[in-house]
Simulated assay, not measured.
Amino acid sequence: MAVIPVALAGRSYEVRVGSGLLADVAGQCGKLLRKQRVPIVTDSNVAGLWRDTVATSLEAAGKEPRWLVLDPGEGAKSWRVLERVMDWLLDEEVERGDHILALGGGVIGDLTGFAASIMKRGCGFVQLPTTLLAQVDSSVGGKTAINTSAGKNLVGAFHQPGLVLADLATLDTLPVRETRAGYAEVIKYGILGDRAFFDWCETEGPKVMAGDKAAQDYAVTESVKAKARIVAEDERETTGARALLNLGHTFGHALEAETGFSDRLLHGEGVALGMVLAARYSARRGYISEADGERVVAAIGASGLPISIAALGMDADGRKLANHMLHDKKMDSGTLPFVLLRGVGEAFLDKQVALDDIAHFLDEQLKTA
């Protein structure tokens, strides 16, 4: 088992990566579970696969698991479902010193974490991520949120978990499409700041998708180490370091919004397309060579992820897609910074990008197969 510390003043915690962690969830959480009743938020897909495993561990330790099982999907990150979660937590008499278990992918983690952040002005929670994407990205760093009609993750809080248990066994139950979507966040760490890791992804990435445990262990552990370093440096995204983690996200969120935050385009797929667009736009502006830009595109495409926005068949032009970006939470004084590339493994924040130019660029991309 790998143990990666997320070093924050007064709020440090561990991310543990290994197989069989959910089967020992009571032992792993230890004193964080201070009362007999343990509140757990999950969705029906995950419950069907991992509820018994978690319940067996808790019950063997003398705990009483209390379950809230939600419908799966991005629609759970809403005001309506948040209200349901809060009412349930209050009925369960959750106190500020308690920890809620978030068992599921990024949607469950984001929703439960945000609920924990506002429950009696803040209670604890433990991330039990069951998707590759959640293990390498959303479960680490304390960003929690719900979506609104104006856009994705616009209402939320920074609220760090007390512990993250990334059980690699859960990856065996993922559909191939979900694994690929998670892999987008893995290769992102190489593209934005670690060329050696990008080189590894080019050669070993297919093994991650194929279920090779050694490759998955390395991919998750190295990704978490990278994110932990950045979060420790810039927890609340004030210095610009953490903003680099948004590589692909500004473009990707616009595509997600246009496709209705639906299964038509998974979040990881949106990020993959966003990184393709960021690489090509960086080349267009002369920041990166076209050869390096297309190397990024080829590595993403080789994993089975989408690399063409035209293939989405959207009824939208570049201006409509760019307008979605006006609601981006990173907008500052009317300017939207973009994470672009000076090379493979060298991302930077460009605050001089005109949305009119982005709209024109997207029009070009919508015509490219």
Rank of each mutant, 00 (worst) to 15 (best):
D110F: 02
L82C: 08
I108R: 11
R177F: 00
E178Q: 15
A157F: 04
L90I: 13
I108E: 01
V69T: 15
A55G: 09
G193C: 09
D91Y: 11
F114P: 02
Q160L: 06
R195N: 13
R80M: 12
A184Y: 03
G124F: 01
S149G: 10
I146G: 01
L192K: 00
V69W: 06
T148F: 03
G113P: 06
L111C: 03
G106H: 12
G105W: 07
R80H: 14
G182L: 00
V85N: 08
A184E: 06
W88M: 05
K77Q: 09
T53E: 15
V94M: 13
Q160D: 08
E64S: 14
R177A: 07
P161L: 10
Q135L: 02
V85S: 08
D52W: 04
T131A: 06
W67A: 03
C123P: 01
G97V: 05
R177P: 07
L168N: 08
F125N: 03
T179D: 07
L168Q: 03
K143T: 12
I187R: 01
P129K: 05
G113I: 00
A145D: 09
E74T: 07
T130I: 03
L168C: 07
A150C: 07
E59P: 08
S117M: 08
L90N: 05
V94S: 06
T112G: 08
D172F: 12
V164T: 03
L58C: 09
W79C: 11
P129W: 01
V136T: 09
A184S: 15
S139K: 11
C123H: 05
A150R: 15
G75H: 12
A115P: 00
G156S: 13
G75F: 01
V136C: 08
G75A: 15
T131W: 06
S149N: 12
T53L: 06
A157L: 08
V85M: 09
T56W: 07
A61M: 12
P72D: 10
E185C: 10
P175C: 11
V136R: 06
G106T: 04
A61K: 06
I191M: 12
G124L: 04
E59M: 13
D172P: 10
C123G: 00
S57M: 07
K188G: 05
K188R: 11
G113A: 13
G193Q: 10
L165H: 02
W79R: 13
A61V: 03
S117I: 03
G106P: 06
R195A: 15
G105Q: 11
D167K: 11
M119L: 15
I146R: 05
T148Y: 02
D91T: 12
G73T: 10
R121H: 14
D167R: 11
